[in-house]
Nucleic acid binder design. Sequence first.
DNA 1: AGATAAATTGAAAGCGCTTTGGGTGTAAAA
DNA 2: TTTTACACCCAAAGCGCTTTCAATTTATCT
Lengths: 341, 341
Amino acid sequence: MNLKELSEILGLSQTTVSRALNGYPEVSEATRLRVQQIARENNYSPNARARGLATGRASAIGHVIPIGLRHEMVNPIFGDFISGVGEVYAREGFDLIMSVVSGDEEMNAYRNLSARSSVDGVVLHAPLMNDPRIPLLRDLEMPFVVHGRASNEEHPYAWLDVNNTSAFRRATDFLLDLGHTRIALINGLETMDFAYRRREGYVSALSERGITFDPSLMRADEMTEDFGYHSAKEMLARDVAPSAFLSASMICAFGIRRAIEERGLKMGADVSVVTFDDDLSYLANGQNVPIFTACRSSVRTAGVRLAEMLLRQINIPDAPHETELLEAELIAGQSTGPYKD
Amino acid sequence: MNLKELSEILGLSQTTVSRALNGYPEVSEATRLRVQQIARENNYSPNARARGLATGRASAIGHVIPIGLRHEMVNPIFGDFISGVGEVYAREGFDLIMSVVSGDEEMNAYRNLSARSSVDGVVLHAPLMNDPRIPLLRDLEMPFVVHGRASNEEHPYAWLDVNNTSAFRRATDFLLDLGHTRIALINGLETMDFAYRRREGYVSALSERGITFDPSLMRADEMTEDFGYHSAKEMLARDVAPSAFLSASMICAFGIRRAIEERGLKMGADVSVVTFDDDLSYLANGQNVPIFTACRSSVRTAGVRLAEMLLRQINIPDAPHETELLEAELIAGQSTGPYKD
DNA sequence: AGATAAATTGAAAGCGCTTTGGGTGTAAAA
DNA sequence: TTTTACACCCAAAGCGCTTTCAATTTATCT
């Protein structure tokens, strides 16, 4: 069923039918109703490509997902984030186009989306401190929003980020207040902007209390269960072991807990753990009483906000770049307790 | 840069340029090279929508992700599965279009993709035992492949599934061989086909040894850490507690381990656990020695195969429906040991 | 009633590509 | 030399929609 057929059924021109369906005022209310009625009965929806060709808009947003060395987005937060943006796209009539490419093809993927003009804008994931994708997108004049920030980018751009620095500063303070002084940091890869900022928060909280950070208590890598486990295991085996851990993800925190319990210690009593918690739908941090004391910030909500921000930017191209900084909640759970000698 | 401009630069007709770029034989090798060269220099890629309109093919595959009551796909396996299919799409020049919709809108989402003809085919996720989406897609004459199976569907269709029944039968046998007889099943929602089949495997293994299954040892729900924890906690508190658990997902298994250790027991020694392991990139089951004894089957590989299967089906529409049944590996880890009184 | 304005509707162009159905020129065959 | 074949290239139609511009009808005003 296409416009032509539909208009023949109705005995109207394609023009009028198109107008009726798209809410233009030059069509009488009576015919509009009739058109909508018959369109529904015949299960008509305009062909997406034809409409796009005619309007010059794609009604689609691109998400480029690199795989290979950097796995960051093929990761636990991915599903929840997509569910957030996707909800907005569905509501606003946009498609979500995902390009999964090997890491070295990522820049080309953006060039391609632009050249084939298959999207109206893109969402940038997992920004690095120096992120070459940002100048590229600016060159391509492709609207974009960033989930996170790129510290060394000087021109303005639209972003939404969690205040990672303050979250980890508060988490560190929380542990310091409990009497812990040897606090380990199990971080994500520090070329990632968020990991760098978390480290900053951790280091600054320590130094404000006159504690110089101990590099041997700081590790950074991809945030797997295994990484958490092995890091904690090694540190706990030392003569002077840390009494608390700060983890960049729930998955890591599971690994840390495994190492703690394997050693016959009890999390919360003997060793404290604070983790960042992205509030994932399938990884609930306990039901009533949280398992982990955590900095919590919903990645799904971030997706919703970012999508709305991007669609606004597409509709109003020369509005100033929006930015939004979310504060994570620090929620107390069972994984922390006062320092014991 | 579009075809018209490019052909003007080259001093050729649009026809010839199009043919040169698309590998048609009616163009001399010399001009083909020249065209490709200039096209690359000018960073030309054909407009996706115009090409789609002209060819009648979308060069895109749809994935409909329901959210709301059934969260199954906004879940830990999602990222890895997408990374599998996405790799194939990228290689073959297909786009991946994702529709995130609330559960009750799912059927409409498929109708829409079809009516707007924005995809050439779809991948069906998380099939139910009676899945209304399958007859719908057949009605719409939309090519599709199913990740899993729908037990009560009688007409042939293309699918790829893990042999869930045999995997859980073998896992149960493994535990029985170790002397366990009170084995709990922590399953996914049993309206989901895979969960139903896993239960079948579990029950049949038990009955072959003359053990009638105990409904109080079987639970089914969404596979969260919390669900695993609470189920195991409750069962372990009984007078006659199970000595082994069979878990439908690593996430659940983490929760089961938590309950075990919280009770002061040791996983592997006091209580055994076998889990299904989807071989997720961020949830490695230990590095050298697996943490959990597990039925392992890579969900990423499943994605790759399914995507290839679907593209074949699109290219050769009247070929018979392909099907593929993968056997999961049963790998021995540290989470199982002989039954102790 | 006649003139003017407003409300409706249509014809046709155009979005950027592919593809059909010719053309033209050169080499091989008659 | 003329014919036939082939290699190479092009004009134009058409994919299904939106939108400009123009035409028609109906309502409003002297």
